[in-house]
Simulated scan of single mutants.
Amino acid sequence: TQLASSLPIALSTPVKRIVWSGRDLAVETAAGRIGARAIIVTASTNVLTSGNLAFSPELPKRQLDAAARLSLGSTDRIALQFKGNPLGLSRDETIIERADDIRTATLMGNIGGTSLCTVDVAGSFGRQLAAQGEAAMQDFAIEWLGKLFGSDIAGAV
C-alpha cells in the first residue's frame, strides 16, 4: 500500500463509460471524469456484454461476440477452524489433490500462521455442492480431508 500512497484512488465509484479513443483515455463515473494514460479493465464477461458499461468508441463486435461465448467459472471456499495443527502443515501451505473424478478440492492450510484452513471446490462439482447448502459443503470438506490425512480429522474441527 505504500507504493500506491501517492496515487489518486477512487473507491466505490462505479464506471459508466470508458473512453479509449487514441490518446484520449478516461473513465467516466457519476462522480466525474478521471483521465488516464492507461486503463486496465477487469470486468467479467457478463459485465462487458450486458451493455451497462459503455465504451467510446464501442468495443469491436468480434470481441463482444467472443466475450459472450465465455461462461463464468465457479469457485467456492469452505473455511474450517482446527484445534491446533492436526494436518501437520506449514504456514500458508497449499495442497492440491490429483484426483480421478470431479469430487476434488484444493487446501490452503494454516492461513497466516493460524489454525484456519480453506478447502476450495470449483467447476460443475463446486456448483452442485454449493447448491446443496453449507452443511453439505462442510461435510464434503471434512470427508475429503479425512481421505487425505486420516479419518480422525473430523474431531479436530
Score class of each variant (00 low, 15 high):
1 T>H: 11
9 I>P: 13
12 S>G: 11
14 P>R: 08
22 G>S: 08
23 R>Y: 12
24 D>G: 08
27 V>Y: 11
27 V>N: 13
30 A>D: 14
35 G>F: 02
37 R>M: 00
37 R>S: 06
38 A>V: 13
40 I>T: 09
42 T>C: 06
43 A>M: 05
45 T>Y: 05
45 T>L: 05
48 L>W: 07
49 T>E: 06
50 S>K: 01
52 N>Q: 09
53 L>M: 02
54 A>Y: 02
58 E>C: 09
59 L>I: 03
61 K>A: 15
66 A>K: 14
67 A>W: 02
68 A>R: 11
70 L>P: 03
75 T>N: 13
77 R>Y: 15
78 I>Y: 01
79 A>F: 15
79 A>N: 13
81 Q>G: 09
82 F>M: 07
87 L>M: 04
90 S>E: 12
95 I>N: 04
96 I>S: 09
96 I>D: 08
97 E>W: 12
99 A>F: 10
101 D>K: 03
106 T>L: 11
115 S>D: 13
117 C>F: 06
117 C>P: 06
118 T>Q: 14
118 T>M: 10
120 D>R: 13
123 G>M: 04
124 S>W: 11
124 S>Q: 13
125 F>P: 01
126 G>E: 02
128 Q>I: 05
132 Q>V: 12
132 Q>P: 15
134 E>S: 12
137 M>H: 03
138 Q>R: 10
145 L>E: 00
146 G>P: 00
153 I>D: 04
154 A>Q: 10
157 V>M: 09
